[in-house]
Nucleic acid binder design. Structure first.
Lengths: 210, 210
DNA sequence: GTCAGTTACCCAACATTGGGGTATTCGTTC
DNA sequence: GAACGAATACCCCAATGTTGGGTAACTGAC
């Protein structure tokens, strides 16, 4: 039944790759290519007609809009679509930018027949297809820094700062004097090489200290 | 060659499960169980002797230390070990706490022979074994909120706040007056229902606004 | 017994922030 | 063309935070 097939949209500027994706996807009984475009702008224009369940999105696109920006807009205009990024790179910044933009999967252009279809199947059943390397990158990104320069108490106070607590509130909550909070915070600033609360929070987030 | 087998350590209080894990792991030519303990404390005591490459760690352990705390300590004392969490729950908070603690994989106790061995293989080759559901949870955690109440400019300013910039620095960087920065920040506070910078950053992080 | 961590206090000048306003300009949308 | 959201800009004032020095006692781990 064509009606029960998942509607796949392909955004890829290389005609050969796009065509080979079309052939592979259409070869499955579960999926059906509803359209293929060479730019995000085109794809976005026809979203309401194409009604995609899954979007295979090239990251490196010529012209105005790359796949990351495109994914954001598609997610905004058609939130039910699951987006799989297709790229030649597994560069860490690019991967995280892609994931932030709303992609739920990440495969490389070198993906063969089986890999492409299994990514589609994986995302259909609510998973998040990605390579081993990317899975590990993503997981590593969660790990809190085991080499934090901060003491336990300092980490605790940093946590309270991140909740917007003032010196006074911190001292009340931890049953210590206001001056002690100040001492701790001064020490935190020195260790993190920052000089205000919000910067400390930013640093703590980027270095995974809390 | 036993010397080339990856050294697997098992921490699991249920003797039956532990034994069945031992049998499965030892049935592989790639892996070898070096020891099995019913508590983290025991496992930690013998780390230097066991020298594990991979730790299969139960989260729900009786007594003083659960698997999350245990993972932290093991990662601290024996950083080269890759930790796979074994649990009955796929609850979101628990998963994220486990990942923060240093685990690189997450499987359920219902894992069968094949699933257990493939998790070990996956982690051996630098991947991060996890179920479809957890992979998606993890990926979803990266997505920035598409329904942010903040305008583009407000988001931009929030970003600068998270870098520790003062009103003055923000106004200089954006070529606007100090008072305008203040106005934007006041509006941000109102929208996020906070009343200071650090709290705004904490909220922005938890709601994925930046 | 030493050392790190936590606690606590002092002073004082200076900068920043938060909370309350008001108001203009510029697009977009209705 | 009116209404609206967004961005811009200004005013005042009290409260809070930061800088930049310090000193010192207690505790628990190694």
């Amino acid at each position: 039944m064509s009606e029960n097939k998942k509607r796949v949209l392909i955004v890829e500027d290389d005609k050969e790759i796009r065509n080979s994706f079309v052939v592979i996807v259409n070869s499955s009984s579960q999926f059906n290519v509803v359209n293929g475009y060479s730019s995000c702008e085109e794809a976005i224009k026809h979203l309401n007609a194409d009604k995609p369940d899954i979007v295979l999105m090239d990251i490196e696109l010529p012209g105005g809009m790359n796949g990351i920006k495109g994914a954001k807009i598609i997610k905004d205009k058609w939130p039910t679509a699951d987006i799989i990024m297709v790229t030649v790179y597994e560069d860490s910044d690019l991967v995280f930018e892609a994931l932030k933009s709303g992609a739920s999967g990440y495969i490389t252009k070198s993906a063969n027949y089986r890999e492409l279809l299994s990514a589609l199947e994986e995302i259909s059943k609510g998973g998040a297809p990605m390579s081993s390397k990317i899975a590990r990158m993503v997981i590593d990104n969660f790990h809190v820094n085991p080499n934090s320069p901060l003491t336990k108490r300092e980490t605790e106070i940093l946590q309270l700062i991140s909740e917007g607590k003032t010196y006074t509130q911190i001292s009340e909550q931890l049953f210590i004097s206001k001056e002690t909070s100040k001492t701790h915070i001064k020490n935190i600033y020195a260790k993190l090489q920052v000089n205000c609360k919000s910067e400390a929070i930013a640093k703590a987030n980027s270095e995974k200290l809390i």
